[in-house]
Design a protein around this nucleic acid. Sequence first.
DNA 1: TGAGGTTACGCCTATCGTAATAATG
DNA 2: CATTATTACGATAGGCGTAACCTCA
Lengths: 91, 91
Amino acid sequence: MSLRQFEYALAVAEKGSVTAAAEALRVAQPSVSQQMHGLERELGVELFARTPTGLVPTAVGRAFLRDAEAAVSAARRTRATARAGAEELVG
Amino acid sequence: MSLRQFEYALAVAEKGSVTAAAEALRVAQPSVSQQMHGLERELGVELFARTPTGLVPTAVGRAFLRDAEAAVSAARRTRATARAGAEELVG
DNA sequence: TGAGGTTACGCCTATCGTAATAATG
DNA sequence: CATTATTACGATAGGCGTAACCTCA
């Protein structure tokens, strides 16, 4: 379970397909597909339902995504906070 | 920047030394030391001040740790949420 | 010299990309 | 047949542990 997997899952949910998510993330499709499968295998839950046109979050998936979003946001904040703190020291 | 680094940093801050943190995390000292250096290098900030008896969070480090704590908590929540959601489906 | 931290190095796993293989409309 | 997802596979990078080294009281 990693931040990367969270970001990939959020992109898949937003874009609605592995292909579109991979494009937005600037990585190849298989990377996204593999990470999603690994995530689901680790959690033992199906996060996305596979449809002919793409992937749609399941009920469990939607709940998962809320927490994943929070985790990713907090992680991004660490970077911004550190940067701001560093500049404050300099200034 | 990874959840593992966040967890390591939180352990270092809590225990006050790399050695104690590594013991609590059940990993070798160098792993923790390396991860902290990698984190600081990536952020371009000194998160911990090295003292003769251990590591103490800097001002920037303390701000960083707050966000890291939030990220780790949210990440743990994803697991609990997914598990609870899975059981709900079963039950 | 004992307690802590860091650096060096080799192994092993994980991730990625390319290519090949389904499946669906 | 075009589009999407998945599987296979080889290459690369990252994380860990052991061992060696450094620093300070």
